[in-house]
Amino acid sequence: MEINLREKNEITIFDIKGEIRRSEITDVTLHQIVKDQLDDGKRSILLNLSGVEFIDSFGVGEILASYISTQNLGGKLKLTQISKKLYIVFQVTMLTKVLEIFDEEHTALNSYTQD
């Protein structure tokens, strides 16, 4: 798993590539990187999953933990460009009831200003 950070309109975008699974984590976890951003005062976080092929239960735990940490500080964590296959899994497991997921990055970015 590879994570690159960039910023647009005070929103920190995580471009994630590869698989978010336990066996793919070598150094720091996604949740730890999100917590570091929150410590820096960032409160708007967007996970761009366009390069993510697979997520295992550990990955789901990481996304949920990141979401909880962000929300508890009054921030917003959203997801964008998730694959169709993953979206169906998210729907069936009701993750879509908790997480805000957008098709396109720009619509996701615009949604932060409407909150």
Partner: peptide, 11 residues
């Protein structure tokens, strides 16, 4: 909202 254990089990 979520049963996290169940969600993880599906994954």
């Amino acid at each position: 909202i979520l049963d996290i254990d169940h969600t993880k089990l599906v994954f």
